[in-house]
Design a protein around this nucleic acid. Structure first.
Lengths: 211, 211
DNA sequence: GCCTGTGAATGATTTCACAGCA
DNA sequence: TGCTGTGAAATCATTCACAGGC
């Protein structure tokens, strides 16, 4: 323990969380690393090793208490609270993100939306009034926003990200197909279905049979 | 050469493609691995090694011809053609995917949309008429569809994926938060912004400074 | 007997470092 | 000189295998 935790491990924790939630819904109380591995298509050893970075959650001879592990993982990931988020860019994609219900159920809530188009500023979508990007600083500070979602045109994205960073945002969910530059201490994940498709076609072309 | 190509390498190729496209738009004709690495925040050695799996595209002392490398990568990834796709699930998320413009510009086109809700079947969205999932087999065969996008409720997702596989689809872009089971020879990529957010909060909680 | 937690071993990926060519 | 392509070395991630507890 007290070792540096590999980023790949962090990337898997939400998958564990998701599967454990399903098990909890089915009132399954205990799960072994082998069973969890079956659901996730990971090896039992990997699951045990991953969890061992954070503590000793299992019981020998039995496995893991589903509810308890669920609570522990939520704590580890910082999901035992809600996270207010800002959305930048209320074009077609931005509006789809605004009306997406998947975030709220996990404690992520878009509490402010911004655009630079004067025709959009002041308009309402649901409970939100679209604000001028110029107000970003103030709103981020007032609402304690640490996470922003970026859905602006590619040509504006880096500048918007710079502004977000300057305003104190520490994490960005980026829907724009660019390679963003970031200072240390700010985290970013890309969402890009086109990139995913482009890796699929490689295998289709080959008629590749290893899954 | 003729070595098995690591999957991580395939995952990076579309990023190279994207950056090369931007360079080509700026009429930049030649790029070195160091410059390309600067744009992508990768090491030059990684770029050279990755490309070396597929051939020798560079010129010593100069670097890579942007247009030529772009064409080679498109060929390698199977992007020198267009790919008709089917969308399964025309709920809120599915409709957002239907109206998303990002796919078409890269040669991916949704040519058929399916749902199981009788109230939706027969309705038109743009140029598409929503079909009954029962027609999937026929349409996939007729239109030569190898790629499907899944955007149904979680409870239906695995069954829909089974149906797709049975109909001959070889690649799936999955927007549903499940761990799908697949036979060999079928490829899947997940799109799940919530998972991405859940890994970001881990770092926020820590006030983590290494980027 | 069953299953966890974990060092050690294996395997995969990245980076180094340099020969060779323009 | 400048940069590629590539074996070898270094680093990182996964899996093994087993001691120890329920």
């Amino acid at each position: 323990m007290a070792q540096p935790i590999p980023e790949v491990v962090i990337l898997r924790l939400p998958l564990y969380l998701r599967t454990l939630s399903r098990l909890a819904e089915k009132n399954i109380e205990v799960v072994s690393s082998r069973e969890l591995g079956n659901h996730l298509q990971f090896t039992p050893a990997q699951i045990r090793k991953d969890l061992s970075y954070f503590g000793r959650f299992g019981k020998q001879g039995r496995g893991y208490d589903v509810k308890h592990l669920l609570a522990e993982l939520k704590g580890i990931l910082g999901l035992d609270r809600s996270w207010p988020m800002a959305l930048i860019g209320v074009g077609q994609l931005g509006r789809a993100i605004l009306s997406y219900r998947g975030f709220a159920t996990e404690g992520f809530q878009i509490v402010a939306a911004f655009d630079s188009d004067p025709a959009k500023i002041g308009k309402r979508y649901g409970k939100l009034t679209i604000q001028d990007v110029a107000e970003l600083n103030k709103t981020v500070a007032e609402q304690g926003i640490a996470i922003a979602i970026v859905a602006v045109p590619p040509s504006q994205a880096q500048q918007v990200i710079n502004t977000l960073v300057a305003s104190g945002v520490k994490a960005i969910l980026n829907y724009v197909p660019i390679t963003a530059r970031l200072p240390k201490g700010v985290w970013l994940r890309d969402v890009d279905p086109t990139l995913a498709l482009q890796t699929l076609t490689y295998h289709l072309k080959l008629g590749d049979t290893q899954a």
